[in-house]
Design a protein around this nucleic acid. Structure first.
Lengths: 208, 208
DNA sequence: CGCCAATTTGACTGTGCTCAAGTAATGTGG
DNA sequence: CCACATTACTTGAGCACAGTCAAATTGGCG
């Protein structure tokens, strides 16, 4: 483990910086140590669409952004540990298990994308917003308060809703007492259980 | 290439058979030679939701179905060439390039899932149906007539629409003369260009 | 021919989008 | 430090698109 960490290089990004994803020494894979990354994909209309976020302690799919033609941008001060392809291959030849771990990593990313497909496919606006908040909360490690340094428009792209609908749903959750928002970008989850029931993922209620 | 094919085992499935995806000699990766596979994922409610299709000459993500908890089912007579994990590792040690090809394969699957996220996120019903038909048509190799042996309800799950809306949109395309449907499951694409313009993916029109 | 399932069509309804106005937060220059 | 400008967010009214429910039609099969 130590030997692995020594081979990785740590890079620091300020808010809004774009990670170079091409070239020989481009990051082949990486781990976000702090801060977060946003993954945007250009649309055929020349716009750009937010597809996913990578929070601290989550991994970057190897070159996923290149193949998927995505752009990785830091959100806030972000620290990323990366490893180029040659280095990874050196490590993998020493530790064969790494090759498989890498595969699992990207497979989990695929599974995550499919989860989100379910969300976008047949969930209502309130279910989508609740699902998103639960997902973020869990991935942050269930903190008292989360910082989501992104606009309502960004959250709308993630959930397939308009910024107005996102705002309305979040306000509704606040009025219902499930969350608190001291600032628009700061969210406290007050009732995680009730929030989870609104996701639409709650298992069918068992008859008493 | 020949040596690769010799190592793979060819399996034949009848319509509706489920592919075993667990166990030591379960398919680690595979290629659909003919027919097609559907990838369903169980929902938290105990239902099942169609997420993706794999047509002939397309590859199966290595164990993707296991990690993603998906079920692979044959649609119609289907021939699949598979390879278990041990066999693949033997091959890969002989041909190092395979390891990278495998990675690319699953990365492409991820890119495809993200494409679909864009479709589900912010497209209208007619754009979704047009996009789906264009995608299927291209992946089938642009044949005169496609056979889509699946119900409107299945197409609805793929596109995040109801079966009624799918039916209405397909009928509208037929009345507009862009496609023909001699049978509900047989689709002829008459005007691929016009169909593509309805996908919402058409590049912004250039001023004359 | 009759049955059954899938598809199509219709009428109505509701959710979420659009457009628009108002409010809160943030930054800037004097 | 405050007035101002700017951007983001919130809220409201109206409407359209797609969902729901229900009925009619089609095609397949014994």
């Amino acid at each position: 483990m130590r030997s692995i960490q020594r081979k990785f290089t740590t890079e620091n990004y300020r808010d809004g910086e774009t990670l170079a994803c091409k070239g020989v020494d481009a990051p082949f894979m990486g781990i976000v140590r702090s801060g977060m990354l946003r993954e945007d994909r250009p649309t055929p209309q020349g716009r750009t669409h937010l597809l996913a976020l990578t929070f601290a302690n989550e991994a970057l799919a190897p070159q996923g952004c290149v193949r998927a033609k995505c752009t990785l941008t830091s959100v806030g001060e972000t620290e990323v540990m990366t490893c180029d392809q040659r280095t990874f291959e050196e490590l993998a030849s020493a530790i064969p298990r790494l090759q498989l771990n890498l595969l699992h990593l990207i497979q989990d990313q695929l599974a995550q994308a499919q989860d989100w497909q379910l969300l976008l496919g047949r969930k209502t606006a309130s279910e989508r917003v609740a699902s998103m908040l639960v997902s973020f909360h869990q991935r942050h490690g269930r903190p008292d308060e989360m910082h989501l340094p992104m606009s309502r428009a960004d959250l709308g792209q993630l959930t397939g809703l308009t910024l107005e609908t996102v705002s309305r749903q979040m306000r509704a959750l606040e009025k219902a007492g499930l969350i608190a928002m001291p600032l628009p970008t700061r969210v406290r989850v007050l009732d995680a259980v009730a929030l989870h029931e609104l996701t639409g993922d709650a298992p069918a209620r068992v008859a008493a």
